[in-house]
Simulated scan of single mutants.
Amino acid sequence: MKFLLRLVVVFILLSFILKIFGCTNMGQRIDPTVTNWFEDKKWDKRLLIFNDVGDNVELQLELLNSLPEELEDRDILLVQLTREGSVSNTAKLKAPPMSGSRKRFGIPESEYQMVLVGKDGRVKRRYNALVQPEEIFACIDSMPMRIREMQGLSEKPDDSVGLVDSKLLFDFSDENDIHPWFLLLDGVMGGKSTGNLSAQDGVLTFSGQTSLENNGGFSSIQSTVPRSAMEQMDSFKIKLKGDGRKWILAARKFDTPTADDYWASFETSGHWEEVVIPVSTMRRRVYGFRMFGSIKPEEIKGISFYMYDKNAGPFELQLKSLWSLKNKN
């Protein structure tokens, strides 16, 4: 009994330490200033981002600012990358550091480029020369999300799942939605499980083999999610094809992976299917052990898919898309 009590105390202390420091050595390096600023605009604004090089900047801004109603109608925010990071078609909002913004969107440092970023946070077009606003507006008006806006519709999945609103978080036919995902295996704890992440034909495939050697037995893929991903939402919807084994979707309150997250398990049939997981069903785990605590949708900063069914053997999970949802109830 004393041993169990000591074990619980150790886990609680570890959980507290991880909450303060996170496991930054287990995940990606993230520039929080840049990431947070742009994630705050996601699903709310489309961005036209300029680097401050050459004469085209002022000419392009003049053309665009001459059509304020068109910009407002399409929720376009103009961001000029200067040392101050000014925003030109609103009150002077302070944007994140220039170098981090360039790196995030792959904008060259020494030559002019304007980048169109959609409400989903992905780059849609790059312009290396002066362009007429009508060409930009036509590009935006052809986007599925913009078409739904003009029709007065919100982002909705099919009615078969009984949902009234949604946000597309990851579409794995888009290369930009593949890059944030990375492997985290039980090797960090001395285990022997393997994992591989690949993408082809619009499908992200996570495969490998779990091993129970050295008290291991898990493999996972991890990603951050936009800060606005779960605002007014309460569930996840995943279009996937599993291998017949039981899988886990985990959510966390930190940008980087920790051993303190919230799990919900789901069965897979071996066929393509849609799985809906309410956040309210996710239960806290620390190093796989059940702990007290819950997570609110708006607290979610990262998600993971785990193979951790305490069985050794091959696994494979194929993913097409991931949504956040709001249920009718």
Rank of each mutant, 00 (worst) to 15 (best):
D159M: 04
M150P: 12
R146F: 10
E149M: 14
N176D: 15
C139A: 15
A138R: 07
A138T: 06
Q151W: 09
D177L: 04
S154T: 15
E175S: 10
P144E: 02
S142T: 02
S142L: 05
E135N: 12
G162F: 13
R146P: 08
K156Q: 13
V164F: 09
P144R: 02
G162R: 07
S173N: 02
M143C: 12
E155N: 15
M143P: 08
V164I: 14
R146M: 11
F172V: 01
S142I: 06
I178G: 02
L169W: 02
I178D: 00
Q151G: 14
D159T: 13
D159S: 11
N176C: 13
E175P: 05
M150K: 12
G162W: 08
L163R: 09
S173T: 01
F170T: 02
I136F: 00
S142P: 03
R148G: 03
D159P: 10
L169E: 00
L163F: 12
R146I: 15
L163G: 07
P157E: 04
L169I: 08
G162M: 06
A138D: 05
S173V: 03
E155K: 09
S142E: 03
C139Q: 12
E135M: 13
K167S: 06
V164A: 11
M145T: 15
R146H: 11
F137A: 12
S173R: 09
M143A: 09
D165T: 01
F137D: 01
K167H: 05
S160Y: 14
F137M: 06
S154K: 15
D159K: 15
G152H: 00
L163W: 11
K156Y: 07
S142A: 07
F170C: 04
E149D: 11
V161R: 03
K167Y: 03
P157G: 05
F137R: 06
K156V: 12
S173M: 10
G152E: 00
K156E: 08
L169Y: 01
E155P: 14
E149W: 08
R146K: 12
V161I: 08
V164R: 07
E135K: 10
K167E: 03
G152R: 01
I136T: 02
N176K: 12
G152V: 01
S173C: 06
E135S: 06
R148N: 04
D171K: 13
K156T: 14
N176V: 14
F170E: 00
P144V: 01
F172H: 02
V164M: 11
K167R: 09
Q151A: 13
E175L: 08
